[in-house]
Computed example of a mutant assay.
Amino acid sequence: MSVFDLNGRTALVTGGARGLGAGMAEALARAGAAVMIGDVLAEAGRETADAIGRSGARSGFVALDVTREDSWQAAVAATVAELGGLDVLVNNAGVEISSLVVDLDPDDIRRMCEVNIVGVALGMKHGLRAMRPGGAAGAGGVIVNVSSVAATIPFPGIAAYSATKSAVDRLTRVAAQESGKLGYGVRVNCVFPGLVATEMGLGLAADMARLGLWPSAEAAVGDVIGLTPLGRLGEVADMADAVVFLASDAARFVTGVGLPVDGGMGM
């Protein structure tokens, strides 16, 4: 059996309706996992879950607002009840709002903190509670948090977003320490994706032009590629395969780390 085989395991992916989250959910399903899509985008979320189901994997959708504790409780309970457990949690849901530091809007900062920090913290809380001995699933497992290359380099126009993604890294490492010391049997890691040409990624490039930091979105993308030793943007599959690795037995002795998946940009 391959160490990347996830047959018999169940995953919950937040922000799984589209973009990176959908790609991660699909990759987990291809590796054999049953996958629950958790998202506020109900129509898109159900479509992604249905597409995964048509591929032969067990799948489902649950409405999930990661900023609300009651929503997390319901989503975890639904995953365990409908798919039979919870072995992998991918905290992917995130919000990016670009701004120069001199123009920062406190409401935008609060929104990013709510989704990117509070959402991840609550996800780990309820994921650990479900996976630890005596929990609703109780068989241990894996949590993978999605940070960003923005947590590792100073990139203009995204100061507040970068701060929230740096917080994801710190949350990850502390949770891994606690899980290990308390015998939860849950590994906790994060990934640092580079720029990917998703709706969010292309929107970020357009924002850089709007803010006057680059003459055009194309110029911003070109400079990102120039800063990347592998000489290209990331692809959804690059990020998704890294998540499958961390979720699998290939990473059985890996916890408390941040894995750059950025083509070397964050070196």
Rank of each mutant, 00 (worst) to 15 (best):
L28Q: 03
G201N: 09
E82S: 14
E82K: 15
M124H: 11
V257L: 10
A247Y: 03
V120Q: 13
G45V: 03
D87N: 12
G256S: 12
T79N: 11
M208Y: 13
G85S: 05
I37R: 00
V66M: 03
G185K: 07
E26L: 07
L213W: 06
A33G: 02
D103C: 05
Q177F: 13
G140F: 12
G45E: 01
Y161I: 02
G212V: 02
L89Q: 02
A42G: 06
T164A: 02
A220E: 10
V144G: 01
D241C: 01
R129W: 05
D87M: 07
R170M: 14
L202V: 10
I158Y: 13
V254L: 09
C113I: 14
N7E: 11
L182F: 12
G141E: 05
E235S: 11
A209N: 06
A250R: 11
V236A: 08
G56M: 10
M265Q: 14
V102Q: 13
M208G: 08
G180S: 03
S148L: 06
G84L: 12
L211I: 06
V221A: 12
M265L: 15
C190P: 03
A78V: 02
I37L: 06
A78S: 14
G85A: 09
F4R: 13
V95P: 02
Y184K: 07
F61N: 01
V88C: 03
V13E: 12
A251M: 08
A150Y: 09
G85W: 02
C113F: 15
N145G: 06
G94A: 14
M24C: 10
E199G: 09
G94R: 05
V254C: 07
V174D: 07
G94K: 07
V95I: 12
G138D: 09
L12P: 01
R54Q: 14
G222H: 13
V80M: 08
L213V: 11
M267Y: 14
G231L: 10
A31P: 03
A137Y: 13
P215H: 13
E43T: 00
P193Q: 09
S216P: 07
A150M: 12
L83H: 10
V191L: 15
H126R: 13
L204V: 10
T14Y: 00
T14M: 03
V66R: 01
F245R: 10
A197C: 00
P106T: 11
R110Q: 14
V142A: 15
G222Q: 15
A34V: 08
A11V: 01
V174N: 12
A197D: 05
T172C: 09
G84E: 11
G180M: 04
N116R: 08
V146A: 03
E199M: 09
E47R: 11
A175I: 09
R9S: 10
A205I: 02
L100A: 13
W72E: 08
V120E: 11
L259T: 03
K165N: 06
A159I: 02
G21V: 01
N7G: 15
L104G: 07
V224K: 13
G256V: 03
V13P: 04
C190W: 06
G234Q: 09
A75C: 00
L89N: 05
A163T: 10
V3H: 14
A57G: 07
R170S: 15
